[in-house]
Design a protein around this nucleic acid. Sequence first.
DNA 1: TATTGTTATACTCTATAACTATA
DNA 2: TATAGTTATAGAGTATAACAATA
Lengths: 166, 166
Amino acid sequence: MGTDSIAGDAAPSTLAFLLSQVGIYAARQFSERIADVGLHPALFRVLNLVDAAEGRSQQAIGEAIEVPPSRMVGLVDELEQLGLVERRPHPTDRRVRALYLTAKGRETLERGREIAKAHERDLTKGMPAADRKRLTQYLQKIVDEQTIGRGIHPGMSGKPAPSQQG
Amino acid sequence: MGTDSIAGDAAPSTLAFLLSQVGIYAARQFSERIADVGLHPALFRVLNLVDAAEGRSQQAIGEAIEVPPSRMVGLVDELEQLGLVERRPHPTDRRVRALYLTAKGRETLERGREIAKAHERDLTKGMPAADRKRLTQYLQKIVDEQTIGRGIHPGMSGKPAPSQQG
DNA sequence: TATTGTTATACTCTATAACTATA
DNA sequence: TATAGTTATAGAGTATAACAATA
């Protein structure tokens, strides 16, 4: 049996298919790139949230990104072991572990943000600024129309991996 | 600790983030919808390929969508048990199982394609045709510029699940 | 009783490698 | 020896539920 590529609609070009294809590709690419600073997307996401809400509890931060408490434990463990985040006692509630960035955490976050920018540039290379802007608006409109979560995507830890639906 | 929503950039609105967010959402939505005909995205993908390349071997079809042989076994098993696809002996090579759609397979494929259309309509509801066209062109341009696979996305089997990166 | 954080457990998905029957 | 298909196995990732300390 030849390996001769199968013609036809091996990859349909409908809008929905393209969205999935490009979106999942973008997530995977980012996953590989953010590994350069020792993170994976979920850790980067949590790190951003801790920065935006320092001193909040593990679970409060987890809720904001739709991550269950039991998973937050592991993620914060990782960030703590990497020396990027600290768990400190809450002043009045001894059950709570308040989260804070370390200096190293801030540096890493900054570097991660640079990586995110570079990722974005590469993704849209060869695209005029006006088009980039319109594309962003279209996507934002879809987000506004649909009910789209703010969570972390499971299974996007940056493995090799293939690509799509119909 | 209160559930008071954490303000700030809980969900950044960069282009790359939006692409991932919308793309993964689109894939998940499709995954849930295609379940109406008893399929999941990988099965629908294979079904489309069998239609486009009837009589080809399991592995030839698997290669076209970047699915390893061992996984094809399970997928074709499922399709066969659903009565959508048949494995027939190859006329000259007894190792090969040539794949064919059944009548029911054709019907299901047709229904699946209707679902895909409806999915697409809903995804872009409230968007003028001209905008939809431009959005498609932008995404196609990204596909052309990048090296994006034609495979099946792991972990998109349509579970509950949350959402994103940075 | 309710809640924060934790641990234990179990499940899904998938790839790698070993195996068989044919070539 | 090589290839098509299969099976066995092992790992990643994640959610659910039970648990301890504290409120």
